Amino acid sequence: MKRFWLTLRIWLATALLFAVLYAIIAVICTFLGFGTPLIFAIMSIVVVFAQYMLGPSMVERVMHVRYVSPQEAPNLHAMIDELAMNAGIPKPKVGVAETTIPNAFAFGRTKKDGRVCVTRGILNILDEEELKAVLGHEISHIRHNDMAVMTLISVVPLICYWIFISTLFGDSDSDAGVIGIVALVGYLLGQLLVLFVSRVREYYADQGSVEIGGKPHKLASALYKLVYGSVNLDKRQVKEVEGVKAFFVNDISDAHNEISDLEQLDLDMDGSISEMELAELRNMKTSIGTGSKIMELLSTHPNMVKRVKRLAELSNT
């Protein structure tokens, strides 16, 4: 049932995005005719297609990914072998990113082209079962093929943005002004909806990890450690990976804002979340700061307290 509601939310948001696009094109067609919106749409699709084709190599370059053999990383390959088999997908390529940023990420064009990578930083802070749960999260992204969904829906705010920009440099008449305002509203709404879908897919991947063998309390503990591991990152490091951080397990830029809220989850303050602590969290009332709630609306990832709380619910199923 939880899977059904997550899927429904993704498709409803996607349908709303394209309804927004349809409304904007209808307004433009009323003022300018049918040619101009089509040109914008074609240009946007070409850009997104190029991003779709070149995206994997760009991620590899930014993250300094090096693919490793089973001989080089036997434990890593063994976990991914098991999880991919449980997920019913071809085994993805296995890589290590030579960075101290503690995280993991999945990318690729299709299920057959999937790649799962871990950073050197995450290997240093997680135990084996925590790492397995994180890898299950990443493999679930490939299993759900939500990378393709994100590429598709990102077209909508892009089209709206280009239409808005074109009105700034076009004829300064009232028609252009109306179109520009409508396109700007569409862009802002579209961006919020894209971020919403991105956050929902993270919940979906968390649940997917549990379904294919990741333990809920181990994933919760891993998420907790990743936030703390991201707090003291050099700002230059974060800046270097700004363009690909949406692929990460958590939003490394928001770690400072999540720290104070997360303290309430580690009941014995030992730096991890045990199975007993996660069970207690199921019925425990948690609080989220106002700043964190606002930041979540503008983030690609859900609030970490809410994610852990949801894992507590999953641990009871």
Rank of each mutant, 00 (worst) to 15 (best):
residue 92 P to V: 11
residue 93 K to S: 15
residue 94 V to T: 09
residue 95 G to S: 13
residue 96 V to E: 11
residue 96 V to F: 12
residue 97 A to G: 13
residue 98 E to T: 12
residue 100 T to Q: 02
residue 101 I to K: 07
residue 102 P to L: 07
residue 103 N to I: 08
residue 105 F to I: 13
residue 105 F to P: 05
residue 105 F to M: 14
residue 106 A to S: 14
residue 107 F to C: 05
residue 108 G to E: 02
residue 109 R to L: 04
residue 110 T to R: 07
residue 111 K to Q: 15
residue 111 K to V: 13
residue 111 K to C: 00
residue 113 D to N: 12
residue 114 G to K: 11
residue 114 G to D: 11
residue 114 G to I: 06
residue 115 R to E: 07
residue 116 V to N: 15
residue 117 C to G: 01
residue 118 V to D: 10
residue 118 V to R: 07
residue 118 V to T: 02
residue 118 V to F: 05
residue 119 T to Q: 10
residue 119 T to V: 06
residue 120 R to S: 11
residue 120 R to F: 12
residue 121 G to I: 06
residue 121 G to Y: 02
residue 123 L to N: 14
residue 123 L to M: 15
residue 123 L to R: 06
residue 123 L to G: 10
residue 123 L to W: 10
residue 124 N to C: 02
residue 124 N to W: 00
residue 125 I to G: 00
residue 125 I to S: 08
residue 126 L to G: 07
residue 126 L to D: 00
residue 126 L to R: 07
residue 127 D to C: 01
residue 128 E to S: 13
residue 129 E to S: 11
residue 129 E to R: 08
residue 129 E to Y: 06
residue 131 L to R: 12
residue 132 K to L: 07
residue 134 V to W: 11
residue 134 V to F: 14
residue 135 L to F: 08
residue 135 L to D: 11
residue 136 G to N: 04
residue 136 G to C: 03
residue 140 S to A: 15
residue 142 I to D: 05
residue 143 R to E: 15
residue 143 R to Q: 14
residue 144 H to S: 12
residue 145 N to P: 01
residue 145 N to D: 11
residue 145 N to G: 13
residue 146 D to G: 00
residue 146 D to P: 03
residue 147 M to H: 15
residue 148 A to V: 03
residue 148 A to W: 11
residue 148 A to F: 01
residue 150 M to S: 05
residue 150 M to A: 11
residue 151 T to P: 00
residue 152 L to S: 12
residue 155 V to P: 00
residue 156 V to A: 09
residue 156 V to Q: 10
residue 158 L to K: 03
residue 158 L to M: 13
residue 158 L to S: 02
residue 159 I to Q: 09
residue 161 Y to D: 08
residue 162 W to C: 14
residue 162 W to G: 07
residue 164 F to M: 12
residue 165 I to F: 10
residue 165 I to W: 15
residue 165 I to L: 15
residue 166 S to M: 09
residue 167 T to S: 14
residue 167 T to R: 08
residue 168 L to M: 10
residue 170 G to A: 12
residue 170 G to H: 15
residue 170 G to V: 01
residue 171 D to P: 11
residue 173 D to Y: 06
residue 174 S to T: 05
residue 174 S to L: 14
residue 176 A to W: 15
residue 179 I to A: 01
residue 183 A to C: 11
residue 183 A to M: 06
residue 183 A to E: 03
residue 184 L to S: 10
residue 184 L to A: 13
residue 186 G to Q: 04
residue 187 Y to T: 09
residue 188 L to Y: 00
residue 188 L to D: 00
residue 191 Q to E: 09
residue 191 Q to G: 09
residue 192 L to G: 02
residue 193 L to D: 05
residue 194 V to F: 13
residue 195 L to T: 01
residue 196 F to G: 06
